[in-house]
Amino acid sequence: MTGTGPDEPVIAVRELRKDFVVRVRAGRFRRTKRVVAAVDGIDLTVRRGEMIGYIGPNGAGKSTTLKMLTGVLTPSSGEVQVCGLIPVPQRTRLALRIGVVFGQRSQLWWDLPLRDSFDLLRHIYRVPAAEHAARLRRCRALLDLDGFLDIPVRQLSLGQRMRGELTAALLHRPEVLFLDEPTIGLDVVSRQAVRSFLAELGRAGDTTLLLTTHDLADIERLCRRLVVIDHGRVVHDGSIEALHARYGSRRLVVADLDEPLAAPPVLVGAPLLRTEADGRRLVFACESVTASEVVAGLARLVALRDIAIVEPDIEDVVTRLYRAPAPVEPV
């Protein structure tokens, strides 16, 4: 199998669209058909080794996009290539070069021990025994699989099964890994294990990762690039920092004082948001000045007991983005 060249995008999407026909009530006894665009003209280019967070509200088109990229759904229009292949007509070849983990679906054999599922997948993907053993060894160490390798999949906890799903998706060394809600429903320990494993995978740089999730902590810890989709369209494609800048998120400076002040200090470009702890704590927002400028200004005006800089919360930023008006349809 030949891969894409080092300078070629591993995922190339242009004007990708997926329409569904739905029936809506049009009177007491009649229903009419209406075309709904689940994905509405997406452009996306992903380079080898990138780790991308692909997020949006329910119904935004995230899972539909992944299904078109993996060859499960046929696009209504547009162009899509993954690993240099067109997903639907070349789905069999593509399956050998991608890994897929859907949080609500399993690729493991329910009644077999986890170890046997891995062995069956080795034969399905025709992975040489030595390569399979080496990759499985790495996954066992990073995901702590040894305690439940011989337990049937149906008896595993959700966290154990998800670690098994990740291993199953990676044993044939895919070029691209598609993850749809991989940490949904996991306990804290399992969630951290999955995040650490994916971070290690990203540092290696030989696997491209496209992650959809509602857990924004996954995005912050794993992905440098964030693609936000809403109403079937891309509304942001860039860094998390660029998202903060675009939607007006602000750093906060929290100043603790020995004694409350008769009147709080006034700082240009840093409004006082609130006063806490009976006036002994002041919270300022960095609007047109940097946090260091706010700290320096406070130090000149008041006696500080302690000071802290609070980074903006990506969840708040994305919530504001989702609340923005929907794109206006052309007339």
Results as ranks from 00 to 15, higher is better:
Ala133His: 12
Asp7Cys: 12
Leu301His: 09
Ala169Gly: 01
Val194Pro: 01
Pro265Ser: 04
Glu329Trp: 00
Arg135Cys: 07
Lys67Cys: 05
Gly49Ala: 13
Val254Asn: 03
Thr65Gly: 04
Arg280His: 12
Glu311Arg: 13
Arg126Gln: 15
Gly232His: 04
Ser196Gln: 15
Val39Phe: 04
Glu50His: 10
Ala129Cys: 01
Leu301Asn: 07
Glu50Arg: 09
Gly49Cys: 12
Arg246Ser: 11
Val283Arg: 06
Ala277Asn: 13
Leu143Gln: 07
Met51Ile: 13
Leu301Gly: 02
Ile98Thr: 13
Leu108Asp: 04
His172Ile: 00
Leu66Tyr: 04
Leu211Cys: 03
Ile309Thr: 12
Leu226Val: 09
Leu171Ser: 08
Arg23Asn: 09
Val283Ala: 06
Ile240Trp: 06
Gly159Cys: 10
Ala95Glu: 02
Arg173Tyr: 01
Ala168Cys: 02
Arg93Asn: 10
Val100Ala: 08
Leu166Gln: 07
Glu165Lys: 04
Glu165Cys: 00
Lys62Asp: 05
Thr290Trp: 09
Glu287Pro: 00
Leu73Lys: 08
Gly238Arg: 04
Glu329Cys: 04
Arg115Asp: 13
Ala134His: 09
Arg137Thr: 14
Ala326Pro: 11
Ala38Val: 12
Gly78Leu: 03
Leu149Lys: 04
Leu210Lys: 03
Ser106Pro: 00
Glu241Lys: 03
Arg14Val: 10
Arg203Glu: 15
Ala263Cys: 06
Val227His: 01
Trp110Ala: 09
Thr4Glu: 03
Ser249Met: 13
Thr74Gly: 08
Gly103Arg: 00
Glu8Arg: 11
Leu177Asn: 02
Leu114Tyr: 10
Asp316Met: 07
Ile124Val: 15
